[in-house]
Amino acid sequence: MEQKTDMRILQVQGLEVSYGHIQALKGLDLEIMKGEIVVLVGANGAGKTTLMETILGVNKVGKGDILYKGKSILGKPADKNVRDGMFLVPEGRGVFAWMTVKDNLLLGAHHNIRQADEKMKAVFESFPVLSERRDQVAKTLSGGERQMLAIARALMSSPELIMIDEPSIGLAPIIVNDIFEIIVNLNRQGYSILLSEQNVYKALKCAHRGYVLETGNLVLSGTAEELLNNPGIREAYLGA
């Protein structure tokens, strides 16, 4: 948890994004070091999903800059960013319900198809449940299994930065623990992770640092420990 290199994998500078007349992000600054888990804290509508999708290259940037591995990626489409090692595990998992587990995984390896077999073997070793269900359509999986599939699909792309949007939403508490364990394990294997969560306590417990968003503004940032002990956070998000 403590080991931190000085290399920044992602820098967001003064980022502004609007949907029509509504400004969703109002000048955000954020950075992620290689090997870090950074958590985004905030209520619904705070801009967490917008931020992640904008980093991925889906939304148009009004102002500001996004640097990935030291280079600006403004205007770069999502498929190019995925090719360069970025992957988003979307809110609600985003698995393709009518496609098999195997096809879903192979979609993750779309830009990396030569290594697909090897990657899939590794993924099946880490997630035996998915191996058992490889020929079933994703529709037949439970919520937790779908979340695993969505994370496993990210791994198929050989990512360096994984963004995970609300992984615990709609899952039973025991399964939430499993998912957080998976995320921590991924981080130990060296993946940099940007995590958005409403389960603030659990997320901060496994993260290095965190940012607090409120209606498109960054209101607070710090190490996970600082945030956990911050009276404002405790009151607003931890019910203490």
Partner: peptide, 24 residues
């Protein structure tokens, strides 16, 4: 095939397909 998989993914969920990095 890889191309066919992309076709089917876009057919099922165009937005989801974009998020997993398929060139729409």
């Amino acid at each position: 095939t890889r191309a066919g998989r992309a076709f089917r993914a876009i057919a099922e969920d165009p937005n989801g397909a974009r998020l997993v990095g398929l060139p729409i």
